[in-house]
Design a binder for these strands. Sequence first.
DNA 1: CGAATATACATAGATTTATGATGTATTACA
DNA 2: TGTAATACATCATAAATCTATGTATATTCG
Lengths: 129, 129
Amino acid sequence: MYIRIIERLMPFQMYSKELLKGTLKPIILKLLSEKESMYGYEIVQAVKELSAGKIVIKEGSLYPLLHSLTKDGTLEAEAVMIGKRIRKYYRLSQKGKTVTTESLSELQNFIKTIEQIIYPKEGDYAFKN
Amino acid sequence: MYIRIIERLMPFQMYSKELLKGTLKPIILKLLSEKESMYGYEIVQAVKELSAGKIVIKEGSLYPLLHSLTKDGTLEAEAVMIGKRIRKYYRLSQKGKTVTTESLSELQNFIKTIEQIIYPKEGDYAFKN
DNA sequence: CGAATATACATAGATTTATGATGTATTACA
DNA sequence: TGTAATACATCATAAATCTATGTATATTCG
């Protein structure tokens, strides 16, 4: 309760959430392609670390996404009891591996296209002036 | 009328619209920073060309965005009659130039972060396995 | 020891951004 | 002459994420 309030008072500067849209899925799939399996909280921590604190996935984004990816057969889930606490491990299904490849290549391609526009090579802005 | 139907039947493959989210604004601002002024239709064509047809901004996205950027003082608009047809030219305001710099650097920074995750350097995935 | 923090899951509702569908009208071209 | 291109506009809808909230266990530190 207190925590939530403090978090709101001291939001550390991340990216405007809009930029994230469409990138969460490939990011998560990429992580899962690097490890056998991961659980939700672990994914949040890993992304935070890999992005130097700049991308902090919210639970409200992550859990629904993991559920829907499981439902559509991209992921397979397995619940494990750690002491009295539950933990859900997710792994890529066979289909998930294909989805990952496609999702990543779309993202990579998209980034290239954006870069083409924001870092133009000489002559790209032929219409200039 | 016919056109609309055909367009729906032959949607040429662009990026899933979600990826675009958050990038349209910086892209448009970037274009406007390269030219004195542009009008809506011209922006759509320029983005299409610069992206080799991969990014086709829809009117339903562009015009409301241009309006809101004008309303918040980022852009200045000027209507011109071309024959009997109207054309609205947009240019960056002084404030708009600052907004452009900020918006572009946020996008560039964001892309770098994403690349860090999807093209990891040796050791980045220290947690691996 | 007790309180704060970290771990770990979950979901409902609000927000944001872009699109789809539609409308109007002029101009160019074949 | 009619089809495509130019050029504006708006409303309803969709999709993705976040905010806010809830629950509960485990760890750490003063």
